[in-house]
Structures are given as structure tokens and as C-alpha cells.
Design a protein around this nucleic acid. Sequence first.
RNA 1: GCAGCUGUAGCUCAGUUGGUUAGAGCGCCUGACUGUGGAUCAGGAGGUCGGUGGUUCAAGUCCACCCAGCUGUACCA
Length: 506
Amino acid sequence: MNADEKQNRLSARLPRGLDDRGPAEIAATRVMLDKIRVVYERYGFEPVETPAIEYTEALGKFLPDQDRPNAGVFSFQDDDEQWLSLRYDLTAPLARHVAANFDALPKPYRSYRHGYVFRNEKPGPGRFRQFMQCDADTVGSASPAADAEICMMAADTMEALGIPRGAYVVKVNSRKILDGVLESIGLGGYENAGRRLTVLRAIDKLDRLGVEGVRHLLGPGRKDESGDFTKGAGLETWQAGVILGIFRDGGDKGFDLIATSIALPDGKAVREASELYRAGSDELDEIRSLLLASDYGPDRIRIDGTVVRGLEYYTGPVFEVELTFPVQGDDGRPVRFGSVAGGGRYDGLVGRFRGEAVPATGFSIGVSRLMAALTHLGKVDARAPPGPVVVIVFERERIADYQSMVTALRNAGMRAELYLGAGKFGAQMKYADKRNAPCVVIQGSDERAKGEVTIKDLIVGAELAKLEKGRDEHLKNQAQAQRAVPQTQLVSAVAEVLARHGIAWT
RNA sequence: GCAGCUGUAGCUCAGUUGGUUAGAGCGCCUGACUGUGGAUCAGGAGGUCGGUGGUUCAAGUCCACCCAGCUGUACCA
């Protein structure tokens, strides 16, 4: 290689926030999605998928926050100059799908899907620019029963994934509660939309910054440790006091409703002052009684006033699933995973495509993030799955014979392959080891003369290899991990090894 | 975006107050030990020291700018 080639050589790098996935991770994801699917289908949801690319306008032009129309989204122009974007969640595309097929679909319409979504944001631990979500949505029902059901399903799913009751909690709140409180302190109306957003974002940080940190954000602003200053919402002290009053006990009230007794300066309670608040409160009341009727208590699902959810299209109840056990990172420090799933009611989303309002509620599991958490919990099998049986090519000119052994194994439903490389025996053993092969099939001249094949159990062999020191002892021990059988018994002998290690290929 | 920290081999890192040809461990490749993964032994590949410019007789080392990564913060529809 000359200097010029070196100059021009590509670096095999990946854009940040993106990751390749290996066999172990793929297998674990498949297992996880399968468990989720079983629960979703038990609740009557049917699979529907949409493409990863949509017209940009279909994804998000409904936002009141218009100052950054394209930030955070991967977008590009089609040859007719229409703007396209990679989906950033599965909800907006579903809304488009339902609107497009509205007349044909049964309503209410229950569906689920999983797929990659893309966000062009700064990545961090547990935050990627491509990650998988698994959603379920009910479109066409305004009933709180639809919301309650989503919550129950969220709880069931967590337990199906092996997270014990008490190690997770489904938190429920309503946008109407928060909006109602804001309305009651004079932040209602279109002209205050920006400030309401700032307030909601501040509340969302309650668990991280604490009450005092949020109080600063509601007022003039807050300076963090690095000296960076965050501009606040600029509320009066009494306004911030009313808002923070909701969260007096960290927001977690079990199944009790929030802020019923908070007093405004004129002596009225928030409940009396805001119709929105009453609507949200009634909604949560109904959800609660539905949950209790099915025995879903506060050990699984709770009402929590701190749940905000960033998505601006939520219009009513919002949900969030949080893991309650501490997780240690590789460096031993505790890791915050944030919420592993969330959702809510989005009554305005489908209606954008149609003249009429279409109520909808749904729920999304962050599969990638949840898997990272489950891995830390030891609920994910992080081992690479077993590789194929490797048939060693001993006498090069007899490759057809070896190929026929491979075929015999495959015909018996086993995963098997012929060694296709150029390596000698030792190299082929190393290859089989790296492939995680449970066993190899060997037929050299000795075996051929007797009409036999040698089956070597690599898993047993690996155990034996830990013991010895010298070369001679090593070979002697390795011989115990293998056994010669008549070639006619090739398939049954391999099957025996597989059975010994509980490997079932179907 | 803002702030702080960090960039030397595939990975983890040494590299003195600037001073010959930039090192180690692990990993990788080849070979030996009669046809066996491990161990051991012998050999090998792999780096314009993140980039550009500057100071200097001399820069991995000092200075400026840029780029990238990490952490925090903001944003996250």
C-alpha cells in the first residue's frame, strides 16, 4: 500500500448516535418483541406497519412551536421538490395511515407495530439517533376506558418482560390538569402557548432538579454547575407557588387526585376556577375506577402530577412507565434511564387529515432503551446464540463428501456449514470456536478408513481446556470431548450433542 | 447551541524540563509443538502522535485556530 492509498483510505466509522447490532442483541430484541406482541394481541390489537419515510408535513407541521420547523428531523427533498422526512415516532405515521384508510377500517381501530424511528438530536447514554419503538394505539374512541386499558396493557407488558411488580410503575396524569392550573393562574389562551410550554418543560425536570431548581426555572431562570444559564418562564412568585403546590409530595399521590385544595389569591380553589381542570380531574377519576374494577391498584398504576411528556400533540391523559430499581452503569455509577415507555391521548392528530375530530390514545415502548435497562437487570440473555455445526474440511480433494455431510445435517433441520476458508485443521477449529459452534464434524484419513466420523463437542472441550497446562495433557483431555461413530450415525450423534446442551433448532 | 475535559497502534494506555529511528500490555496474522480451540515458544503486520498554521537548530510535547469525542446543560415535536 502506498502513501496515496493510505491518504484516500476510508475510515470505517459510523455517525454518532448510531450503532451496529450483533447476533446476541438481535436475538434478544426478537425475544423481547415477541413477548410484547403476545400481550398486545391478547388485548385485541392487530399489526399494521407504515414506511419509515413520510411527507414532512404529515409528521409535524401541526406544532405550535414553529421556530424550529425542521430541527431534530432527518429531512430531504424528493425529485418533485416535496420535503420528505424519516419518521421520528410511530404515532404521527399511524394517524396518517388511519386517515388514509378511514372508511375501510373498523372503528374504534386497535393496532400495534414496531420499527425504527429517527431523531437528529445530540445522542447520549441510552439515547440514540436511530432506535426502536413498539406502539399500540386505539383510534376512534373518546372513552377513558380506552386510556385505562392502555395503562393496564402497559403494566401487563412490563411483567411479561420479566420486570417484577413493584420494579416498575405506570404513571398517569392529564394534560388538562396542568393546563387547567395554568389557566387558573392567568396563563390560558393562545398568546401564552409559549410560556405554557416553558412551564411544562420545567415541571418535567422536577425529578432531576428538585423543587427549588424548578422554582428558579418558573421564575427568572437557573444557572447550572457549569455556569450555563437557562432562561426561565418569568412567572410571579405566587404563580410558581400554585404550580409547585401540585407537587408537594413529589407529585406521587397514589390514586388520589391532585391539587384539589390549592388556593388562588382570590380565595377560590383551582378546581372552581378552571373548567379544564375539572374535566381532567373527572377523566382521571373515571380511569381510576376502571382500573380498580379490574384490580389494577397503585402497586402497578398511579396518578402522578409530575408526568408531562414532551410531545405537544397530547390532549388528555398522558402515561409514562418508569423503572423503579436503581441501575448501575459500567463505571459503577447509577444510571438514569428515564422513562422506558410513554403515551397519551392525542385527539387532534388524525383530525388534521380530515374535517372531523377523531379521538385516539396510544402507547409506545422504547425498545432499545428498555433493553438496555433489562440487560442491566440481568433479564436479557446477552450471550451470543449458538452457531452452526461446522464440518471440517480435512482432505481438500474430498470437499464433496464433506458437503454431503452438511446437507444431511441440514435435511435433519440442524444448522450446519462447510468450512469455506483456506485454513488448516487448527485454523478451522479456531473458526468453529469463534462461530460459537456447539460441535464440529471431523473425518480425516483415519476415520475414512473405518467408515466413521468424529464428533467433537466444543462446549465440553472448552470446559476441559481450562484445566491443563502442557500440550500433551491438553490433547489427551480434548480427546475426551469427542467420539467416533459410524458415518451412518452422523445425524443422531450430532443431535445428541445438541440435546446435551439444550440447543433446539426449529 | 453553551460550558468544561480529552484526542498517541484495532483496544487500554506510557512517552521526563521540547532532543536520535515513538513504546508496552492485550488483540490480530504466520509458524512450531506428528490430526484439535487453550497454554507455551518464535516471528510479523499495524501509527504522517486528530487537522492546519506558528514559535524553535529541534515539536507527540509549547502557542493559535479548526475538527472529533466525552461529561454537564439546553432542545428532544
